[in-house]
Design a protein around this nucleic acid. Structure first.
Lengths: 115, 115
DNA sequence: CCGGATCCTTTTAGATACTG
DNA sequence: CAGTATCTAAAAGGATCCGG
């Protein structure tokens, strides 16, 4: 197995590297929602089921610092924060789309229905 | 967010469903190694860095029971166990391949070199 | 409105020892 | 050779409270 280093952390596969950047429960859902529009925090919160503020803000912060998203603070009262996708973020959309398609086909073959 | 049920577990996205089946640290590496050949347990163990017997056998068992792999026990002395990929498993290869490609491109842009 | 800080629970994975 | 069993450690995620 090959082996790479980043941030003093070891990675053994490129797939593992992908997941370190956009893996986890919420990052792909976030990117997917931002793929063609600017969305504010509270809208993301509403549209992603069950996400806690802790996880949402943590994931947004990481996606921003990894260059997938941009954050814009609009100093109104009350404050308003908008998130948008970057070019780097947009490059992740095709793979997320492919994962979704594969997921739907898997679910169909496994006989899973929308609830 | 949509919502699905399988095994009394809730899934919110098709991507999440994919990861429940072939996610985690070792499942994709296993599938990738079996994509074009039959491999025995000890060979998998050697070729996947740092995997413990516990994790390897656990993941192999799940991949088998989810229909991605087949297991064949050859009653020699000492015993010999071969794992092969099924058609269902093979359907996962394109997405793994795409993830690998995306991973390599991400790594390159992030300036990561083989160690 | 947007989240940071803290604490807690759950899930995942590593270490070690042992068996048919 | 190919695992299982047990225990522990680490990572991910959830709940709640609070502050600019």
């Amino acid at each position: 197995m090959p082996e790479f280093l980043s941030d003093n952390k070891k990675y053994y596969t490129p797939v593992e590297y992908v997941f370190s950047k956009i893996g986890g429960t919420y990052k792909m859902p976030i990117l997917w929602r931002l793929k063609d529009k600017i969305v504010r925090y509270s809208e993301l919160k509403k549209s992603i089921s069950n996400v806690s503020d802790r996880m949402l803000s943590k994931n947004l912060k990481e996606l921003c610092s990894d260059g997938f998203l941009e954050k814009k603070i609009i100093a109104e009262v009350p404050v308003r924060v908008e998130y948008s996708i970057t070019e780097k973020g947009n490059n992740s959309i095709p793979i997320i789309s492919a994962l979704r398609d594969y997921g739907f086909s898997l679910m169909e073959k496994d006989g899973i229905n929308k609830k």
